[in-house]
Design a protein around this nucleic acid. Structure first.
Lengths: 183, 183
DNA sequence: TGATACATGTAAGGGGTTACATGATTTC
DNA sequence: GAAATCATGTAACCCCTTACATGTATCA
């Protein structure tokens, strides 16, 4: 999957591994993330497959920059994947719910502590999506009008996060209230 | 993570790998799933760690049943994990959003086909959560009143799925309408 | 007759995380 | 003087998926 995030990102403009990490943190973090180490190794294997090509840019003080660009083969691989409608339902995995499911013998205070902490984290994530993330996308439309369609889709992915985080917050409120009263 | 699903399940009653798979499909599928092959290998390594113990039950016609039970060490490992409040925000990964994010050059029809298909899958998942899953939990309370607390938490995990799937459906409707009009 | 349920496992590989290793520059 | 940023990578490991392998009983 990271493969396609990298190909999709490099399809906008050539970048180094380090820059790809930053790009992901600013744009796809909400629905896909990766460590630098994985980005570097994946870029290497993509180059081995001929889907990207790198050129080294020498720098005086800092380490050399290895700039990756998508190749024609990479572009057609990306396009094929984008057009391929997949039939499987996306199975999600939620460690917090695993914990909760088996927590009947855990004391109330511990349970509430966990729920309240996670609630806060989701609240921050929601604020971020409604603030920084939203503004970043809005600026793209102004600065680069040829990315109009792209920005529409970016906004859709942001909106997904917003609705999901809002639903999560509602669930935390319901669940915390339930544990306080009935547990 | 599967480790704790298995320990948590075996903490209710001893089961074979095959039965654990069935139990997961009926109860945790919404937030955690695993293949049989992984369940078998994980049980083996848990036995190596002394967290579960197996006894073989011979059968005439069918293959022997290997029944796993949680050990005291396993129970304290599970309890320690349940009580450990973790601070990291749960980073989700959504392949569909990755695809959408990079789909600006994809034709409208392909995009809509993918969105409509995924919408249907989510609709079925939501129906399931409101039907079968809900009834299964309700029956537990009637049949096994000592599992009252457990059932409260199972209902909470079900409700999480319900709210999230409802939010997802709303998002699909918004997004499909947006693509139809503005893309 | 063919599919599904029962029942167990192994082997290879893919994807991802954690830890390690290096080192200058800029900012607080 | 310490921490963060820039910039690259390797090695070991863990978790999970896919494919392979076997065989009976039951149901449609």
């Amino acid at each position: 999957m990271l493969k396609y995030v990298l190909l999709g990102s490099l399809n906008y403009l050539p970048m180094t591994g380090y820059e790809l990490k930053q790009f992901m943190d600013r744009s796809t973090a909400n629905f896909w993330h990766a460590k630098l180490s994985q980005i570097y190794t994946t870029l290497k294997s993509l180059e081995g497959e001929g889907l990207v090509a790198s050129t080294t840019v020498y720098q005086e003080t800092r380490p050399d920059r290895r700039v990756y660009a998508i190749t024609d083969a990479g572009r057609s691989d990306l396009d094929a994947w984008l057009k391929d409608v997949n039939m499987e339902p996306g199975q999600s995995k939620e460690p917090l719910l695993v914990k909760l499911f088996f927590s009947a013998r855990v004391d109330k205070a511990t349970l509430l502590a966990e729920l309240r902490l996670q609630r806060e984290l989701h609240e921050k994530a929601l604020e971020n999506l409604r603030g920084e993330t939203r503004e970043g996308i809005a600026q793209t439309v102004v600065r680069a009008p040829h990315l109009r369609k792209d920005a529409l889709l970016w906004e859709a992915t942001r909106r997904s996060g917003e609705l999901l985080e809002a639903a999560a917050l509602q669930w935390f409120d319901e669940t915390i209230a339930m544990v306080e009263k009935e547990f």
